[in-house]
Amino acid sequence: MNHIIENKQTGWDRSQMAQRAAQDIPDGSYVNLGIGIPEQVAKYVPSGREVIYHTENGLLGMGPTPEVGCEDPELINAGKKAVTAIKGAAYFHHGDSFAMIRGQHIDICVLGAMQVAQNGDLANWSTGSKNAIPAVGGAMDLVAGVKTIFIITQHVTKNGEPKLLEQCSFPLTGQGVVNRIYTDLAVIEVTNKGFELLELAPGVDFETVKVKTAANLIDSRLANKE
């Protein structure tokens, strides 16, 4: 399990990003996991902690992916993939499900991102392309309603463009909503001063992260040591 700490490694892979984020989910939390890397977070919650997963299509107590052949088309997650329900799970309708979100009953939501701005603005639903079919799902409800928003994302795009910016250029999902970002290179907190680096991935130095971040990056590790 502890493959995060290995020598000669540079950065975190997708599973390790999920594993790193999982360490920051407290015992007893109600958590909603977005589609993609965030889905993996559930696999890495440290032992001894009990976390209840919410999926907005009507289930609290979402369990792992079923074994092949045991899928139930009427037991799925928000990504429409087959899941299981744990003992003690509860089903409910969409009105109640989004009351849990809008009413701030869900503690943490882990989402992917296209862009995050230094003031916590998030863009993760549309590139604004005129040819695209717009689709928003529950993303805007989650960022508006959930108390703490974690983002898991690659630090830069496939083309090497920064995703952590002074201002988002894509249409926003929400304003000032992001609390913490887990990338392949670092863990970064969004504070009222902007992006603050909390932790570097193995083999990564501060300058590398700074160069790949298109906004000011404060090194909080120094402040914390003082």
């Binding site: 499900s97 529950g138 805007m140 409800d141």
Partner: peptide, 18 residues
Amino acid sequence: YTAGKIELELVPQGTLAE
């Protein structure tokens, strides 16, 4: 939709439910 032959009102999922 791309051909302009159907109208779309896009609503966030929780807002749609409520």
